[in-house]
Lab assay of single mutants.
Amino acid sequence: NQASVVANQLIPINTALTLVMMRSEVVTPVGIPAKDIPRLVSMQVNRAVPLGTTLMPDMVKGYA
């Protein structure tokens, strides 16, 4: 199973992502692939993302 990107903490709306905010985990449904973590750094979330939430492409500005 492919690992997805999961929030390692509460990420407030419009926050630029950093490595410490994200972890990889095998979850259902599948979200953004963990291999894309380096690409996500500095991108902003367009909503508040609670701890443990799988990041989906529509949550990150400029990803999709």
Rank of each mutant, 00 (worst) to 15 (best):
N1I: 15
N1V: 15
N1E: 15
N1T: 15
N1P: 15
Q2R: 03
Q2V: 14
Q2H: 15
A3F: 10
A3T: 10
A3D: 15
A3Q: 10
S4G: 05
S4L: 01
S4C: 04
V5S: 03
V5T: 10
V5F: 02
V5P: 01
V6K: 03
V6E: 02
V6Y: 02
V6T: 07
V6G: 00
A7S: 07
A7E: 00
A7N: 01
A7G: 03
N8Y: 06
N8R: 13
N8K: 11
L10F: 12
L10D: 09
L10I: 12
L10T: 11
I11Q: 01
I11Y: 02
I11S: 01
P12N: 10
P12D: 13
P12S: 05
P12M: 14
I13W: 09
I13Y: 08
I13N: 10
I13M: 11
I13C: 11
N14P: 01
N14F: 10
A16W: 13
L17E: 00
L17S: 00
L17H: 00
L17A: 00
L17F: 02
L17R: 00
L17K: 00
T18L: 06
T18I: 05
T18P: 00
L19W: 11
L19N: 05
L19H: 06
V20W: 10
V20K: 13
V20E: 05
V20A: 10
M21G: 03
M21E: 02
M21H: 06
M22E: 01
R23E: 03
R23C: 04
R23A: 09
S24Y: 09
S24N: 09
S24C: 12
E25T: 11
E25H: 07
E25S: 06
E25R: 05
V26S: 10
V27F: 02
V27D: 02
V27W: 03
T28C: 11
T28I: 05
T28H: 06
T28A: 06
P29H: 12
P29D: 12
P29T: 11
V30K: 04
V30M: 11
V30E: 15
V30Y: 15
V30I: 08
V30Q: 12
G31L: 02
I32H: 00
I32Q: 00
P33F: 12
A34K: 05
K35L: 14
K35F: 15
K35C: 15
D36N: 06
D36S: 06
D36Q: 05
D36L: 04
I37K: 05
I37C: 10
I37F: 03
I37N: 01
P38E: 12
R39V: 08
R39Y: 13
R39W: 10
L40W: 02
L40Q: 00
L40H: 00
L40S: 00
L40R: 00
L40M: 09
V41E: 07
V41G: 02
V41D: 03
S42L: 11
S42M: 08
S42N: 11
M43I: 03
M43F: 12
M43T: 04
M43V: 04
M43R: 06
Q44K: 14
Q44W: 10
Q44E: 10
Q44L: 11
N46T: 12
N46Q: 12
R47H: 13
R47T: 06
R47V: 07
A48Y: 08
A48N: 10
A48Q: 14
V49G: 01
V49N: 02
P50M: 07
P50I: 09
L51P: 14
L51I: 14
L51G: 12
L51V: 13
G52D: 14
G52I: 02
G52F: 07
T53K: 07
T53I: 11
T54K: 04
T54Q: 03
T54C: 04
T54F: 02
T54I: 11
L55T: 00
L55V: 09
L55H: 01
L55N: 00
M56T: 07
M56R: 07
M56G: 04
M56A: 06
P57K: 08
P57I: 10
P57W: 12
P57Y: 15
D58L: 11
D58H: 13
D58I: 09
D58Q: 09
M59S: 07
M59H: 11
M59W: 08
M59N: 05
M59Y: 10
M59F: 13
V60H: 01
V60P: 01
V60Y: 01
V60S: 01
K61L: 10
K61R: 12
K61T: 13
K61N: 14
K61A: 08
K61M: 09
Y63L: 05
Y63I: 03
Y63R: 03
A64G: 10
